[in-house]
């Protein structure tokens, strides 16, 4: 079935391709730019593309969180870190192995083919929808079935804060 470009389905398909292009372009910028600030900008573009892809996967909540947390908070935090640290360090890197490029390409190709094969070979049955993925149902799940896991995330955050302080600080003055 190939919907016409000027139908609603065709337009949606076009937007889908556009989000994929944005994601890949962002990833390429993030990997290839010499300056760290530009790499972070590329990462932001990539995150926005991924957020849009989540929307296509019927997860508006996850899409929203992707933009809010990754584009909003994480990328800004990385930018702060770059500004506070020495930005000149990025231009000095050691000798790059000549084989790392081809090997990286082969690994990526194998992964792509593998994932594509998995997706194509699986008999995707007509599973009933578990839920509608709305904010309400996610909130209910987090505070009922997944309440313990939800609480445990706070320990992860606590450890991250302690760890960051321990590693970054000069230590107690005695």
């Amino acid at each position: 079935m190939n919907p016409s470009l000027f139908s609603a389905d065709g337009l949606v398909g076009l937007i889908f391709l556009l989000t994929i292009a944005i994601t890949i372009a962002g990833g390429i910028i993030a990997c290839n730019s010499e300056r760290l600030v530009r790499a972070v900008a590329g990462l932001m573009i990539c995150f926005i593309g991924v957020g849009a892809l989540y929307y296509f996967l019927n997860s508006p909540f996850v899409a929203m969180m992707q933009v809010l947390i990754y584009v909003g908070a994480v990328a800004v935090t990385i930018s702060f870190a770059i500004m506070l640290a020495d930005p000149e360090q990025s231009s000095q890197h050691g000798p790059i192995n000549a084989l790392s490029g081809p090997f990286g390409f082969i690994t990526a190709a194998l992964l792509t083919v593998g994932l594509a094969l998995i997706a194509l070979k699986t008999m995707w049955g007509d599973e009933p929808k578990v839920n509608d993925g709305s904010v309400k149902i996610i909130g209910t799940q987090l505070l009922t079935d997944y309440s313990m896991v939800f609480e445990l995330v706070s320990i992860v955050l606590l450890i991250s804060i302690i760890g960051a302080l321990v590693i970054a600080r000069e230590g107690r003055k005695s």
Binding site: L152, I155, V156, I159, S160, I162, G163, V166, I167
Partner: peptide, 10 residues
Amino acid sequence: LEIMSLAIYV
């Protein structure tokens, strides 16, 4: 796994 690993990394 993350609780354990993060603490061990530090």
